[in-house]
Deep mutational scan, measured.
Amino acid sequence: LRGKKKEELLKQLDDLKVELSQLRVAKVTGGAASKLSKIRVVRKSIARVLTVINQ
């Protein structure tokens, strides 16, 4: 992550946020259990990207 440019990080952040919103919709509509663990992974990925951006 640290080797990427800021523009790439921001694009990745947008993609992750879109994916997270889709997973939340799937959870509300009764999605599979595998998607519940994926939510945690995506949230941590967002946190990692934000950490690198803010450093």
Rank of each mutant, 00 (worst) to 15 (best):
I53A: 02
R48H: 04
V28T: 09
G31P: 09
L1C: 06
L36E: 01
K4L: 13
Q55S: 09
L13S: 05
T29Q: 02
S37W: 11
D14C: 13
K35A: 13
E19C: 14
T29Y: 09
K5D: 01
Q12Y: 12
V42T: 08
R43K: 10
K35H: 08
S45D: 06
I46L: 10
A26G: 08
R48M: 01
L1I: 00
L20V: 06
R2C: 07
K44L: 02
V18G: 10
L13D: 03
N54Y: 12
E8C: 10
L10M: 11
T29V: 15
L16S: 07
L9M: 13
R2G: 09
V41A: 09
V49L: 11
V28C: 07
E8V: 10
K35W: 14
V28E: 05
V52K: 15
E7N: 06
V25D: 04
L10N: 03
K5G: 07
L16T: 04
A26H: 06
V28L: 14
G30D: 05
V18S: 10
Q55R: 06
K11P: 02
I53D: 00
D15W: 14
K35N: 02
S21L: 10
T51G: 08
L20W: 10
L16W: 13
V42I: 11
I53K: 00
E7P: 08
N54C: 12
I39F: 09
L9N: 02
A32R: 02
E19P: 05
G3Q: 10
L50K: 05
V52P: 00
V42Y: 06
D15R: 15
Q12F: 15
L20T: 04
V41K: 06
Q12V: 14
E7H: 11
G3S: 12
K11E: 01
K17N: 02
R43W: 14
K38H: 04
N54M: 14
D15N: 12
Q12T: 14
A47S: 12
V28N: 03
K11H: 05
V28I: 13
L36V: 01
S21W: 04
K6M: 12
Q22G: 08
G3K: 12
L20I: 08
K6T: 05
D14G: 14
D14L: 13
L50G: 02
L16M: 10
L1R: 03
L13F: 12
S34G: 08
T29I: 15
I46H: 00
V41Y: 08
Q12G: 09
K44T: 08
V25H: 03
D14I: 14
S37Y: 05
R40I: 09
R48Y: 01
D15A: 14
L50Y: 07
L36K: 03
I46A: 02
R40G: 09
A32H: 01
S34K: 13
T29S: 05
S21M: 08
I39Y: 03
L10G: 03
L9D: 05
N54T: 10
A32E: 03
Q12A: 14
L10W: 10
N54W: 10
T29N: 05
E8I: 10
G30Q: 11
V49Y: 08
S34Y: 05
S37G: 12
V52F: 12
T29W: 14
L13H: 06
A26V: 14
A26W: 14
K44V: 01
E8A: 11
I39W: 06
I39H: 01
D15E: 13
K44H: 05
K4P: 07
N54H: 10
G31L: 14
S37Q: 09
I46M: 04
E8W: 15
I46G: 00
L50E: 00
K5V: 15
T29A: 14
I46E: 00
K44Y: 01
E7L: 14
E7K: 10
S21I: 02
L23W: 14
K5P: 07
A32T: 09
L20F: 04
V18H: 14
G3E: 09
L13W: 08
A26I: 11
L10H: 03
Q22A: 02
G31S: 14
E8N: 05
G30E: 10
G30V: 14
I39C: 08
V18K: 13
A33Q: 04
N54P: 04
V49M: 08
K27S: 07
V41L: 11
L10F: 10
V49C: 08
I39M: 11
S34L: 09
D14W: 12
K38V: 04
R40K: 10
D14N: 14
K5Y: 15
K35E: 02
K5W: 15
L1P: 02
L50F: 10
R48I: 00
K6Y: 05
I46K: 00
V49Q: 00
G31N: 09
R24Q: 15
L23H: 01
A26E: 03
R43G: 11
L50V: 07
R40T: 07
S34F: 10
S21H: 02
R24C: 05
G3W: 13
E19A: 15
S21Y: 04
V42C: 03
T29P: 07
L10T: 04
L10Q: 04
K38C: 03
K4G: 04
V28M: 13
K27I: 05
T51F: 07
L16D: 11
T51S: 12
D15H: 15
N54F: 09
S45R: 09
K44W: 02
K4A: 04
K44F: 02
G3F: 14
E8D: 11
Q22C: 06
I39D: 00
I46V: 09
V25L: 11
V49W: 08
E7C: 04
L13E: 04
V52N: 07
L20A: 03
V41Q: 10
N54L: 12
K38Y: 05
V52A: 08
L20N: 03
L13V: 05
E8S: 14
Q12M: 15
K4I: 12
L9E: 06
L23T: 11
G3N: 08
L20Y: 02
E8G: 14
K17E: 03
R48K: 11
K44R: 11
G31Q: 13
T51I: 02
A26M: 11
A26P: 07
V18A: 13
R43Q: 08
G30C: 13
Q55T: 08
L1W: 15
V25M: 12
V25W: 14
E7Q: 14
L1Y: 13
Q22I: 03
K35T: 10
K44N: 02
V28F: 12
G3C: 01
I46D: 00
I39K: 00
D14F: 12
V25T: 04
K5R: 09
I39R: 00
K6P: 01
V25C: 10
I53P: 00
S37P: 07
A47G: 09
L9F: 11
G30A: 13
K44D: 06
I39N: 00
V41H: 09
L9T: 02
K35I: 12
Q22R: 11
Q12H: 14
I39V: 08
V52E: 04
A33G: 05
D14V: 11
I53W: 07
L50D: 00
A47M: 12
E19N: 13
G31W: 15
G3V: 07
V41I: 10
K4N: 06
K11Y: 00
E7A: 15
L16R: 03
L23Y: 02
V25S: 06
D14E: 06
K11I: 01
Q12W: 13
V18Q: 08
K6V: 10
V49E: 00
I53T: 01
L36Q: 01
S45N: 07
R40Y: 02
A47N: 06
S34Q: 10
V25K: 08
A32I: 14
D14Q: 15
G31I: 12
R2I: 15
K11R: 05
K17H: 01
L10D: 03
E7W: 13
S21N: 08
S45C: 06
R40W: 10
R40E: 03
D14Y: 14
